[in-house]
């Protein structure tokens, strides 16, 4: 698999602020890559460097095999971008803005444009500022998705979309992926990334703290197990990898490291399982471990951190 995006040791400073601090990000061609991080982590800065809008201070970047700073224009014909903060021209309608951006990129697919306007329920004849926030966002999304760009850089594209529109967005991204195009999707909306992304990178304070498929990440983390057994469970505390066990009568609840799940379940069967539910770690939990230093500090899960 070739990499659509590869950065290594990327550094970007704004005066005293170190926005990117040795960022290594790899996005494979044809995948939807979730780019997660809290506010100010450096997501937008990274995307702008990938677009050649900002220039990195150090490190290397390759986008679609080219250098985004030097080959900006050639690359931009193959890239579509949705900025995090969509600003439209006050005297241009949404339809005009879509066409303008499309044709500047080097042409847009008219049929697809009209179809997307329809699907996103967008009124293309309103002028810039008269759009609501979500509708401004839709203008940028339609402009990006109506292109035949190989790589889509989407900076929090659905911030401001209503849930129905978010469903439409997810459908469209799946179509894009089926067509073999690559998507970098930044977000703090975890559920959305979870549904769409093949792989995820988590950025924090300008560094990628973790990267991989959701399954890989889950492996590194804990599953929460709740069970109702015939007889009260004993001896859980002695099992390796089990944490926070709570037993009240025949009900038991504990968290177990991915690697020790098998052993824990085997232990339970001895007590006669009547009901069993388990929750894979949510992305929130994944992120909390990277952001909540104090949370992570107490329990020995250093393996997940770098």
């Amino acid at each position: 698999m070739t990499a659509a995006i590869a950065t290594s040791g990327l550094v970007k400073t704004f005066g005293a602020t170190r926005a990117l601090d040795g960022l290594d990000l790899t996005v494979n061609a044809g995948e939807v890559h979730g780019f997660l991080g809290p506010n100010g982590a450096g997501k937008s800065t990274t995307i702008r460097i990938l677009l050649g809008i900002l220039r990195a201070d150090a490190g290397s970047v390759t986008v679609l095999g080219g250098d985004p700073w030097a080959d900006a224009v050639a690359l931009h014909r193959r890239i579509a971008y949705v900025p995090g903060d969509v600003e439209l021209w006050p005297n241009l309608t949404g339809g005009e803005a879509i066409d303008l951006l499309g044709s500047l990129r080097g042409g847009l697919n008219r049929r697809r444009r009209d179809e997307l306007i329809e699907r996103f329920d967008l009124d293309p004849s309103k002028k810039g500022r008269t759009y609501s926030k979500g509708n401004r966002q839709k203008v940028a999304i339609v402009a990006a998705l109506a292109s035949d760009a190989e790589l889509l850089l989407l900076d929090e594209p659905t911030a401001g979309l209503d849930p129905l529109m978010e469903v439409v967005f997810q459908e469209v991204i799946r179509e894009v992926k089926a067509a073999g195009r690559t998507v970098l999707l930044s977000s703090h909306i975890l559920a959305q990334v979870e549904k769409l992304a093949d792989r995820i990178s988590i950025i924090r304070q300008g560094r990628i703290v973790q990267s991989g498929t959701l399954a890989e990440m889950r492996h590194l983390t804990r599953t929460t197990v709740e069970a109702d057994t015939a007889t009260p469970v004993t001896g859980l505390d002695r099992l390796p990898g089990v944490h926070d066990a709570e037993v009240s009568g025949t009900r038991v609840r504990f968290a177990v490291d991915g690697a020790h799940l098998d052993g824990a379940i085997k232990h339970l069967t001895a007590f006669g399982i009547r009901a069993l539910t388990s929750h894979p770690p949510t992305l929130e939990e994944l992120m909390l471990r990277h952001y909540g230093d104090d949370l992570a500090a107490g329990n020995g899960t250093a393996a997940a951190r770098r």
Binding site: N91, T93, L100, S103, L104, P124, S125, K126, K127, T130
Partner: peptide
């Protein structure tokens, strides 16, 4: 604010046409 054209004219879609429009 009034409504406008739902699609761009051919002129607007060129860099110079766009600048002229602004």
């Amino acid at each position: 604010a009034r409504r406008g054209r739902p699609a761009a004219s051919r002129l607007l879609a060129t860099p110079l046409g766009f600048a002229l429009r602004l």
